[in-house]
C-alpha cells in the first residue's frame, strides 16, 4: 500500500476547510472555559458552604469523568428536556464545561499565588471588592496563568476530534467521511495527523517561550 499523493492533494482543501470548524470549536470552547472557570473559582471562594461544596463537587465530577461521555450526555440527553442545539454549539458547550472545570483550578493556583500582602494592602487602601479584584489581584494573578492557559488551549484543540462522534464535521469527522467514500484511510488520516502536528508543535514551542519570558520577568521583580 503506497501513499497516493494525488488523492491526498485532492482532499487537502476539504480538510483545510474543516480545520476552520476545528478552530471555531476550539476558540468557542476556550472562551466559554475561561469564563466558566473564573465563575466556578469565584463561587468556590464565596464562603457560602452549600455553594462551595456544590462547586467543588461539580468540578471534581467533571474532571473525573471522560469528555466523550459528557459530550454524549449533552448531545443525546439535552434534547429530551427540550434543549436542542446544533452540533457546533453542543461541542463548544461540552468543551467549555469540561475545560472550565480544569481552568477553575488554574485560576485557583494563580490567585493563591498572589502574595497575602497584596490583599492586606487592598484593605488598607479601602479598595472596593471590584477594585481589589479587577485592578490589584487579577493583574498579578494572570501572567503566570497565561502559559498554562496556552497549554490547555492546545489540549482542547487536540480534543476536538471527539466532536466527530457527535457528528460535527471538524477535521477528523471530515476525514472519516472522505475515507468512507473512497475506502482509502491512509491519506486522510495521515493528513489529519500532519495538520494537527503542524499546528500544535509550533504552538507548544510558543507557549514554552511565553513561560520562559514570564518566569524571567518574575525574577526581575514585578
Amino acid at each position: 500500500m503506497s501513499f497516493d499523493f494525488d488523492y491526498a492533494w485532492q482532499i487537502l482543501p476539504v480538510l483545510l476547510q474543516a480545520t476552520l470548524v476545528t478552530f471555531q470549536a476550539t476558540l468557542g470552547g476556550m472562551l466559554l472555559a475561561l469564563v466558566l472557570g473564573l465563575m466556578l473559582e469565584l463561587l468556590r471562594r464565596s464562603g457560602i458552604p452549600p455553594v462551595v461544596y456544590a462547586t467543588r463537587g461539580a468540578v471534581s465530577f467533571i474532571r473525573g469523568t471522560p469528555l466523550l461521555i459528557q459530550l454524549y450526555f449533552l448531545y443525546y440527553v439535552l434534547p429530551l428536556y427540550g434543549l436542542t442545539l446544533n452540533t457546533l454549539t453542543t461541542g463548544i458547550l461540552g468543551l467549555g464545561l469540561h475545560y472550565g472545570a480544569y481552568l477553575s483550578e488554574v485560576y485557583r493556583a494563580g490567585i493563591d499565588g498572589v502574595p497575602k500582602g497584596q490583599w492586606e494592602a487592598a484593605v488598607a487602601l479601602n479598595a472596593s471588592r471590584f477594585h481589589t479584584w479587577a485592578r490589584l489581584i487579577l493583574p498579578q494573578a494572570v501572567p503566570p496563568m497565561l502559559p498554562v492557559f496556552g497549554n490547555y488551549l492546545i489540549a482542547m484543540f487536540k480534543d476536538t476530534p471527539l466532536l466527530a462522534t457527535i457528528t460535527l464535521l471538524e477535521l477528523l469527522g471530515t476525514a472519516q467521511a472522505e475515507a468512507a467514500i473512497s475506502y482509502r484511510y491512509l491519506e486522510p488520516y495521515t493528513l489529519v495527523g500532519l495538520i494537527f502536528l503542524v499546528l500544535s508543535w509550533p504552538s507548544a514551542s510558543l507557549v514554552r517561550l511565553l513561560e520562559k519570558r514570564i518566569n524571567a520577568e518574575n525574577r526581575n521583580g514585578r
Binding site: P161, Q176, L186, G193, F196, L197, W201, A204
Partner: peptide, 24 residues
C-alpha cells in the same frame, strides 16, 4: 515526544486501527 504529544489521541487511535493494517 513531539509527534505523539502534538497529535490527538483519537487520531492516533484511528491511525493504529485503520492505517497500520494497510501497511501490513
Amino acid at each position: 515526544v513531539e509527534v505523539f504529544r502534538g497529535t490527538s489521541a483519537l487520531v492516533q487511535l484511528f491511525y493504529f486501527f485503520f492505517v497500520l493494517p494497510l501497511l501490513g
